[in-house]
Design a binder for these strands. Structure first.
Length: 1028
RNA sequence: GGGCGAUUAGCUCAGCUGGUUAGAGCGCGUCUCUGAUAAGGACGAGGUCCCUGGUUCGAGUCCAGGAUCGCCCA
């Protein structure tokens, strides 16, 4: 009767996983695993909400695999790990997706379509993808509560976000300001810095040198330089560095004022250099602007101003300033009271003040502007200039640096707090902390919070038309108290209609939305609608023990979480961050739809399964380094780890069922040394796995477990095969214990195969994921045994090598192996002599403690111990050791004595640790050595040994024939053999052996006329098999 | 232009606080084992540890400069 459910050796893992998924659903294993830890010490995980804008890709599987493994591990370790899913629903990305669907090109299109309808589409679009995300999430075994997920679009979430903004407002950190921002005229919105970063492209722009004639000095011009000719239309001033030397350079009868350091570079070698002055002396110089359209820039308009940002790296050292179109320019304008004039409309076209250029898209006007300068004689020189310039990451429109009114959070005011909070965070990899992230915090600028878009959390600021009254609203209740009617849906356009009276004035909301990163950064409390509800839950689950996202979140979620919690609660909202790297294709190229090198996760799952996918991510390398990834690389996970593990499991079940072996505890059986070894190694492996996973190192944990599975397969099982055939209780108990424990160890990593194995071999719990993580049992640990086994395995390996080099197959029995070993090594090999004999197929082992028979010792200085001791005298020491008599020294050292060397007339004693003995084999012997021990095999094959080898060959041939005949491993047969007499003679001499190995009930010799012929050493054997 | 990281076998990756024969897996070649069997084992070929300098008795490992690639920032 089968004790265990039979195992398919060809099991399809994807199919197996579907089965396990069904069990998890039926038994509600995930929720049960959380329920069982009710009241335990919580381990808090925060889900960084993905934007469900598009189908999930392989990089999302990476993130979700790592977000899964540590919560699973800590649950098994006894912690209570709630996992609440979340979805980031707002933002420009979603709007763009919808715009694309609807064929929209601009904000006017959206306004015409209707904001309510447009936002309804956005909501629909986000929710549409969430299903597929949910499907993938479940399929890869990412356990997270999707039923209770938070959505950033919910009114409750938005209300919590409003609350956060009100806190910031009350601290005086929320303000409206004018700043020059990277602005996309097509999308009609400013971009955040990380959006800008995505869009840098190399472009060729005009590079123009322009004369700015000095007023009242005929023939003298300041020479300015720019790569954005369109900004010349609103030139407001020129900037020079006060400490830089400027010269009057004469060229072709005119005088040009440029930085001394750049004069020759710009004007050529032949230029005549005149008077030199400091930039500060040029301050106040009035000049003629290049275009007449706007003249009112205030008192200091169209004069030279001093500025520290001017460099002499390129250009002329005289910097054209257009207040509205550059950060430096804008600040300069503020300092010197230049009037802010912006002649460019929000759609990127010049306004009606710009004469012939009115209505033209600024970048396209560049060429004509250069022409106009040429015609007016202002152009000295024009060329092309290649540089990298930011473009809108989605619509590819070149961005404009553009002065806009916007709302900011004064994060610069809390920079020190941010840095201090960062100090409390543990980063993986460590260098991010003070590198990328720390640097980013050091260079903190105020958070540009507002967005002039439609689909997002509305900025809860209401204002009177005259700007005198401003209210930041922190909740719906507060809004009601102010006398407003509050709609159910807080999005635009509904929220825009909310008004109330204050001091006799009508208060209307400012039209802006907020940055989506603020939304997601609020999740620690907003996911619970705290502080309006569930304040206790929020407090219980704050801060997070662990968060994990891709490296690109450094300036995204990692920052928004830290910044918001620092401003609101004065501390970091997470303790440990794991950063994940990029997924690249096998050529190291970034995966992207446009390159067509994207690996669809479903393909991987259907081909190899989710376990393999996860295992690959966990173990192939440190996750932050990025992955060179393809379908095939995942296949290796299956071949190298899952398949061998499955094979062991298959073997156990096969023979346990065959022999009707009952599952037994270790206490009920008599363990052999080999069993104890396997169990000892198991404890060691558990210890490593725990240590590595506590340190967020799946690679270290996974590799240790894989190494153990390899040992189990290629040593324990291989050495124990016969015990399994014959139903040895201790072997079954041991292997079962090992496999069940491995299933637990590997559960967090490859949850499906782990549960399949556990369920069949143990099944005390409904799932392995309800078990405790294995604790190493010191009573089962035996370091000495492990060491001895290692020595014995080394000896076997050396013997195999010796045979291979002598080209003597293992099937040929040999009389003896000669082993050079003494003391502990000899004890070890003697303890496992049976194993050594069988592995090497030799009749006996002969030990020699002296090397004489097999070779000579050579002495080698141990640099590791001697180096620190002798320092720069090391070469002399090495020479002195080389000068010792090897035989005598070796004998002395092996007896535990000391040898003496003389360095600079001083005597030094060296012990066994200081001098290594290396055996040099004598010629003519087949000896393999490793350090001080060596193994030789006696190559002499006599008649008897040869006959035995032939018998083994015959068995080998018969086994082949059994297999060809399609027999089961346990089928009994009637065997008839015919052919060469020498072969038959060998069989006769070893009849018992042949009959036993081939499971033959009867054996007839010389009677297989119609048997299948095979060749053995050039002799023919005819084999006839019949099922008994 | 600045910051951070990477560079080790044909490929994917290990190499702890510097120690003298630089490893594994895959792939390749040869052999082998066989009652886990489209698995397993052994052997072999394959390496200027990106380059150049430096520190040191000794550098894949530490330092400086450079190259290439990636990410981030401008």
């Amino acid at each position: 009767m089968a004790r265990y459910r039979p195992v398919d050796p060809q099991q399809s893992f994807p199919q197996l996983e579907e089965e396990i998924l069904r069990q998890w659903r039926e038994r509600d294993v995930f929720h049960e695993s959380v329920r069982r830890r009710e009241g335990a010490d919580p381990y808090v995980f925060y889900e960084g909400p993905p934007t469900a804008n598009g189908r999930p890709g392989s990089h999302h599987v990476l993130g979700r695999a790592f977000k899964d493994v540590f919560p699973r591990f800590h649950t098994m370790r006894g912690r209570l790990v709630h996992r609440k899913a979340g979805w980031d629903c707002h933002g420009l990305a979603v709007e763009l997706e919808v715009e694309e669907q609807l064929g929209f090109k601009s904000k006017e299109d959206i306004e015409r379509f209707g904001v309510a309808e447009f936002n309804a589409k956005c909501r629909e679009s986000v929710l549409r993808y969430i299903d597929e995300w949910g499907r993938l999430t479940e399929r890869i075994g990412f356990w997270i509560d999707t039923d209770e997920a938070y959505f950033t679009l919910e009114s409750s979430y938005i209300e919590s976000v409003w609350w956060s903004l009100k806190q910031v407002w009350e601290r005086g950190l929320l303000y409206q300001g004018h700043k020059v921002v990277p602005y996309c005229p097509r999308c009609g919105t400013a971009l955040s810095s990380h959006e800008v970063a995505q869009g840098y492209k190399d472009v060729v722009d005009p590079s123009v040198y322009v004369r700015f004639p000095v007023k009242g000095e005929e023939g003298v011009s300041l020479l300015g330089w720019t790569t954005t000719p369109w900004t010349l239309l609103s030139n407001a001033a020129l900037a020079v560095h006060p400490d830089v030397d400027y010269v009057r350079a004469r060229v072709d009868g005119e005088t040009l004022i440029v930085a001394a350091a750049l004069a020759e570079k710009v004007l050529g070698d032949g230029v005549e250099i005149g008077e030199s002055v400091k930039g500060s002396e040029l301050e106040g110089t009035r000049y003629e602007p290049p275009f007449p359209y706007i003249s009112d820039y205030g008192e200091r308009g169209h004069t030279v101003l001093p500025a520290d940002f001017v460099t002499t790296d390129d250009g002329t050292g005289v910097v054209h300033t257009a207040v509205a179109f550059g950060e430096d320019d804008f600040q300069l304008g503020e300092r010197y009271g230049l009037t802010l004039q912006n002649p460019v409309r929000p759609d990127g076209a010049f306004d009606e003040r710009m004469g012939a250029f009115a209505g033209r898209w600024v970048k396209e006007a560049d060429g004509d502007i250069v022409e106009a300068l040429r015609e007016s004689g202002r152009l000295l020189h024009a060329e092309e200039y290649e540089h990298s310039y930011p473009h809108c990451w989605r619509c590819e429109t070149p961005l404009l640096y553009y002065a806009k009114s916007a709302w900011y959070v004064r994060t610069t005011a809390v920079k020190d707090e941010l840095l201090a909070a960062n100090e409390t965070v543990r980063w993986y990899p460590e260098h991010i902390k003070h590198g990328r992230f720390g640097n980013w915090l050091e260079n903190n600028v105020d958070w540009a919070l507002s967005r002039e878009r439609y689909w997002g959390t509305p900025l809860p600021v209401w204002r009177s038309e005259d700007g005198q009254e401003v209210v930041c609203v922190g909740s719906m209740g507060e809004l009601r108290e102010l006398g407003a009617e509050v709609p159910d849906d807080l999005h635009r356009p509904f929220v825009d209609e909310v008004t109330f009276e204050r001091n006799g004035k009508t208060m209307r909301r400012v039209p802006d939305l907020i940055d989506v990163w603020w939304d997601s950064g609020c999740m620690p409390f907003a996911q619970w609608h705290a502080p309006f509800e569930n304040q206790d839950r929020f407090e219980e689950r704050f801060p997070a023990n662990f968060i994990c996202e891709a490296l690109d979140q450094t300036r995204g979620w990692f920052y928004s979480l830290l910044a918001i919690s620092t401003m609101l609660f004065g501390r970091a909202s997470y303790e440990t961050v794991l950063c994940l790297g990029l997924i690249l294709d096998p050529e190291g190229q970034k995966m992207s739809k446009s390159r067509g090198n994207v690996v669809v996760p479903w393909d991987v799952i259907e081909t190899h399964g989710a376990d393999a996918f996860r295992w690959y991510y966990f173990t192939s390398k440190q996750p932050w380094d990025g992955y060179r990834f393809s379908l095939d690389t995942v296949g290796e996970s299956v071949r190298q780890f899952m398949k061998p593990l499955w094979n062991i499991y298959y073997l156990l079940v096969l023979y346990a069922n065959d022999n009707d072996v009952e599952p037994a505890g270790l206490a009920d059986v008599e363990l052999t040394d080999l069993d104890r070894w396997a169990l000892s190694r198991l404890q060691a492996t558990a210890a490593v796995a725990i240590d590595r996973l506590e340190d967020y190192d799946t690679t270290g944990a996974g590799r240790a477990i894989a190494a153990y599975v390899e040992e189990l397969s290629n040593w324990y099982v291989r050495r124990s095969r016969r015990r399994f055939w014959y139903g040895d209780a201790a072997a079954f108990a041991t292997l079962r214990e090992c496999l069940v424990t491995v299933a637990k160890l590997v559960g967090p990593l490859t949850p499906f195969i782990a549960d399949a194995i556990y369920g069949n071999l143990d099944g005390a719990e409904p799932s392995v994921h309800l078990c405790d993580y294995p604790e190493p049992d010191a009573a089962l640990r035996d370091d000495g045994l492990e060491l001895q086994m290692q020595v014995a395995r080394d000896a076997v390996k050396l013997g195999h090598q010796a045979r291979a080099h002598a080209a003597l197959k293992v099937r040929q029995p040999l009389r003896e192996a000669v082993v050079v070993a003494a003391g502990r090594e000899r004890d070890a090999i003697e303890r496992f002599e049976e194993v050594v004999l069988e592995e090497l197929n030799v009749k006996g082992v002969r030990y020699v403690s002296e090397a004489d028979e097999l070779g000579r010792f050579e002495l080698k200085p141990n640099y590791r111990t001697l180096g620190p001791r002798f320092g720069r005298h090391m070469p002399q020491v090495a020479a002195a050791v080389g000068g010792l008599d090897p035989e005598r020294a070796a004998a002395t050292l092996r007896d535990g004595g000391q040898v003496h060397v003389s360095i600079d007339g001083k005597d030094h004693a060296l012990g066994a640790d200081d001098v290594g003995l290396v055996l040099q084999p004598l010629e003519g012997y087949q000896v393999e050595r490793s350090g001080t021990h060596a193994v030789a095999v006696n190559l002499e094959v006599d008649e008897k040994l040869h006959r035995e080898a032939l018998a083994r060959e015959v068995v080998h041939a018969v086994q082949g024939a059994r297999k060809d005949a399609g027999l089961d491993v346990g089928d009994r047969i009637h065997l008839r053999l015919g052919g060469d007499v020498a072969l038959l003679e060998a069989v006769r001499a070893h009849e018992g052996y042949v009959v036993g190995e081939t499971l033959a009930d009867t054996l007839e010799l010389g009677a297989a006329e119609n048997g299948t012929p095979v060749q053995i050493e050039g002799r023919e054997l005819r084999i006839h098999i019949e099922r008994a």
